[in-house]
Nucleic acid binder design. Structure first.
Lengths: 215, 215
DNA sequence: GGAACCGCGTACCGTACGGTACGGTACTGG
DNA sequence: CCAGTACCGTACCGTACGGTACGCGGTTCC
């Protein structure tokens, strides 16, 4: 047998190489510009690579899409989780920060397009992009928000039984119908100021529902 | 010229005939069963009609989809708007009724599938199903809820400045992340009991935010 | 009965696109 | 200098599917 039969980066599983990242960025750009009639030909042309290479690296069209979603997810995860002392003002700031970040993400062109792709795929089964998007979007932020909520409860600033329920209420107050409207093609452009306003309103409402003045 | 050149129901514009309704129901059934790889061939077979007839009636595939969305929308609109006397309990009941209805709709297989189609279409421009779905879903219920909210304010039970904002908060509390999760393929099946519980919680929270005890 | 029409079934066409094959070029190690 | 590898560009194949054409049975109107 040949020495070390699988040395190169066939069918990208872990972190994509720089060149592969460039390809995935091309996919994202194409997706944002052209809507979803994304053809392998177009990707190859845009990324200046051959279709054969695409298939070698990503297996098939679904694999390319999956890798793209993963790639985008990997760059969103930035965000520090400072374990600072928790007073009421800090809690509020943390929640506000989450709300702004979340709105920024879901209102972004990239997120909208990727969610459209994932939703379309969820219709016809096979390789669930939906699951990936869900895991990296909603679940990921949930994993970071819920500890904050629980810390707030421990410190006596919040009152709730189930942190999941509280979190979902928070999401509802922040997101409202924004995401679905954007997905359906509603114009509705949010500028940064509007996002901050929305986020602040949502946090106020959340604290009105779940906050308590003092332990 | 032939006597009365356009007597029959070419390219369905207004209400579809009984036969046409049967075709549209076939489309819905197919959509629910088969996901979104809906082919004209499959529709013709399922509805026992010829493709030629489909094209004659609906123009093209988009036309068929549009007619289907319209048809489904037309049957959801049921629901009385009793202009009963408005006391606090009635207001709560009305809101609860809206919440349950809304959750029932968005959690339904048909709604999920139709929204998926519309969202996929919103990506590639052309005939905006998204707009239609939006108009018949969110906007339609908004048109019915907002008067109730305003009546509640007039009667002194609610306090808010902008009824649109209040309504969207209501929607957020009721729907939370349910719709997007379903669209992305999350299992998450809600039975009637859970829906009632969710709706009640949402209404309670809404009244906690916007209600006031007495004028 | 026959003409006109509707609509079903089926065969057919064109094309877009996923996937593959192959020649040509550049780089690397021996 | 040569083999091997990686990868680009392009030509190619197969097929699924949107859309059209046509023949035939049933119904309506004279």
């Amino acid at each position: 047998m040949t020495p070390s039969s699988a040395p190169s980066d066939e069918t990208v599983h872990d972190a994509p190489s720089a060149r592969q990242q460039a390809v995935l960025d091309a996919v994202l750009a194409l997706l944002v510009e052209e809507g979803d009639q994304l053809t392998m030909d177009a990707v190859a042309r845009r990324a200046s690579c051959s279709k054969e290479t695409l298939y070698k690296w990503f297996g098939d069209r679904d694999g390319l899409l999956t890798a793209t979603v993963r790639w985008q997810a990997s760059r969103v995860h930035a965000g520090r989780d400072a374990k600072s002392a928790l007073d009421a003002a800090t809690l509020r700031d943390r929640l506000l920060d989450f709300a702004v970040t979340w709105l920024d993400v879901i209102a972004g062109r990239t997120s909208v397009v990727l969610n459209r792709i994932a939703i379309a795929h969820a219709g016809s089964r096979k390789s669930n992009l939906g699951g990936i998007v869900l895991a990296n979007g909603r679940l990921a932020i949930g994993g970071r928000v819920k500890p904050v909520l629980e810390a707030g409860r421990t410190a006596g600033f919040l009152a709730f039984e189930d942190s999941e329920t509280a979190f979902r209420t928070f999401l509802g107050l922040v997101g409202r119908d924004i995401q679905i409207r954007l997905l359906l093609g509603d114009a509705l452009d949010l500028d940064a100021a509007e996002i901050r306003r929305d986020a602040a309103r949502a946090v106020d409402q959340f604290l009105a529902l779940y906050g308590q003045a003092r332990p």
